[in-house]
Amino acid sequence: MTSRVILISAAISEALREARFDDGSPVDAAGLRTARTAAAAGAVPAGSRLWVSPTPRCRQTAEALGLDDGVDAPELAGLDVGRWRGATLAEVSAKEPEAVARWLADPASAPHDGESVRAFCDRVAERLDSAAEFDGRTVAVVEPEVVRALVVRVLGAPEPAFWRVDVPPLTVTEFSGRAGRWNVRAGRPLA
């Protein structure tokens, strides 16, 4: 049985524009407009199941795309950055340069008292593999780092590659296959 999982990265927010660690900020007006335009143009893929990351940004994006009947998927929540939440990388680097260096170099490190990149990749990969239990399409609206983590896992790339995958807002990344053997098609703009 072949499954298809289509990830839509959330629309842009003020936190993303300012390069801040997510703090639960909503989608900004431009992001909502772009998402609504994509929905009106019929660009949103249909699926048998709809999962939505529990962040306000993902929920608002799903609603703007006309996907407001999605099921919360806590396993697809963004990376928990603990006490760094709401700060910019520049601010954290100025206060805790050694901690940031360790975090960026060691995927098992979590100096922010949150989640390590390794644990995060493991968490979201489990959810992807659970989609293999279903035939048909699953559509999920998620944070960009969820897409990064899954691309790294599916390709079997080393975990430091997590920092090298760019995921723009409102792009589609598609996984097809089954648990343990997925193919990836990345980066198609939604609109």
Rank of each mutant, 00 (worst) to 15 (best):
V165Y: 00
D23W: 13
R49P: 07
A10F: 00
A35V: 12
D72K: 07
G187S: 06
G82P: 10
G86V: 08
A90M: 12
A77N: 12
R153V: 01
L16E: 15
L150K: 02
L16R: 15
E159C: 07
V139D: 03
W182L: 11
D113A: 14
V52D: 00
A87Q: 14
A149C: 05
A40W: 14
T55K: 00
V146K: 06
A40V: 11
W103T: 06
V139L: 03
S13M: 08
N183A: 09
P107I: 12
F120G: 00
R127S: 15
S25E: 11
V71F: 07
S53P: 13
R33Y: 05
D113S: 11
R36T: 12
G70A: 15
G156S: 04
A186P: 03
E133V: 09
W51I: 05
V147R: 00
V154P: 05
A19N: 15
A110P: 10
G114Q: 00
L155Y: 08
A46F: 10
A19C: 13
R49V: 05
W163C: 09
I6T: 07
R153P: 04
E133F: 08
G31H: 02
T88G: 08
L104F: 15
V146S: 06
R59E: 09
F162S: 02
S48A: 09
G47C: 04
R4G: 07
H112N: 12
E159Q: 13
A191D: 14
E75I: 14
G70L: 10
A191L: 14
N183H: 09
R118T: 12
R137C: 13
R83S: 08
A10N: 05
V44L: 03
P169E: 12
G177R: 04
E145G: 06
T88M: 13
W51D: 06
D69A: 11
D135Q: 11
W163G: 10
R17C: 10
V151K: 00
R36E: 14
A191K: 08
S176G: 12
T88L: 13
N183M: 08
R148A: 00
P144I: 01
A105C: 14
P144C: 08
T37Q: 15
E143S: 03
D28V: 11
V152L: 04
T34C: 06
D80S: 01
H112R: 05
P169H: 11
W103E: 06
V139R: 02
V81A: 06
V165E: 00
V184L: 09
V92I: 10
E115W: 04
A10K: 01
T138D: 09
C58R: 03
P144V: 04
L89P: 08
T171L: 05
A41C: 12
A179M: 06
G180L: 03
E143W: 03
G187W: 04
D129Y: 05
A125T: 15
D69S: 09
A15C: 07
G70C: 10
V172K: 00
G187Y: 03
